[in-house]
Simulated scan of single mutants.
Amino acid sequence: MPRRALDNPIVLAVLGLLLEQNSHPHQMLSELRQRSDSHAAVITRGTLYNTVAALAEAGWVASQGQERSGNRPERTVYALTRAGHDELVRRLDAQIRDPRREFSRFLGAVTYLGALGPAGAEEALVERARRLRQRTAADEERLADALAAGVPRLHVIEAEYALSLARAEAAWIDSAVGDIRAGSLTWPSDATTAPAPTGP
């Protein structure tokens, strides 16, 4: 198994799931997709199975035998090894300490905001803020329900962090929209919109 499989961002998530309980890859995939929109978008069955195989080869997880549910095929259940626990702790510590710049789709788009022109940029930003606040309200309700149900705050700390980021982004968008409307965020006169497409 190529060493680069151990550099996949989902390695940390898989090790973390196995810290909570032993699991088979199908169950891991379902749990990761349920917990995170970003995981749901990028994790495929093949990627997860390859990652688990790499973790087993590295000695970070170990098979605990087969499990069968109903008429479904047998599935291999994995557990975190001591070496896997140590690797999880090492990676967590490094990633929490290091405020590495992480590229996002929104950051990439904002880089070229000027191509939309003032009116287009304002309209797009206002729409993003509206959708962001809708999602944030739903996430706040889910978090409140979880806490009210007795889920320990430490177990949903990532939801608190995600909400904090969403609120900060919405505040920045409001500020940028206000600057566009006030004329303090200006466009060069020769670069207000993207050039019209040219046909054959």
Rank of each mutant, 00 (worst) to 15 (best):
L116R: 12
L15D: 01
D98L: 02
S63I: 05
L18E: 06
R35N: 09
Q66A: 11
R105L: 12
L17P: 03
R68F: 00
G16R: 13
G108N: 08
H85R: 11
A54N: 05
Q66P: 00
L107V: 02
G65D: 04
L15G: 04
T76I: 12
H85C: 03
S63T: 12
G46K: 15
Q34R: 15
R105W: 08
R45G: 00
V89W: 07
P73R: 10
H26T: 15
R91A: 03
F106Y: 10
D86Y: 04
L19W: 07
L18R: 04
L92P: 00
E31P: 00
G114I: 10
R101L: 14
N50A: 10
T111V: 11
R101E: 12
L48W: 01
T44H: 03
L32V: 07
L80H: 02
L80K: 05
R82L: 13
L48N: 02
D37N: 11
M28S: 12
Y78M: 03
R45A: 10
S23L: 15
S30A: 13
Q66F: 05
L88P: 01
L107T: 06
S63Y: 06
P99D: 14
A94N: 07
S30R: 15
S38L: 12
A109G: 04
T111L: 14
H24A: 09
R100N: 06
V110G: 01
S63M: 06
N71C: 00
A56W: 00
E31Q: 15
G59I: 10
V42H: 11
I10M: 14
V89Y: 04
E20A: 10
L17C: 10
L29W: 06
L113A: 13
L15W: 01
Y49L: 05
N50F: 01
R82K: 10
G70P: 05
N71H: 12
I43C: 08
E20Y: 02
T44K: 08
S30I: 09
S69M: 09
Q34H: 10
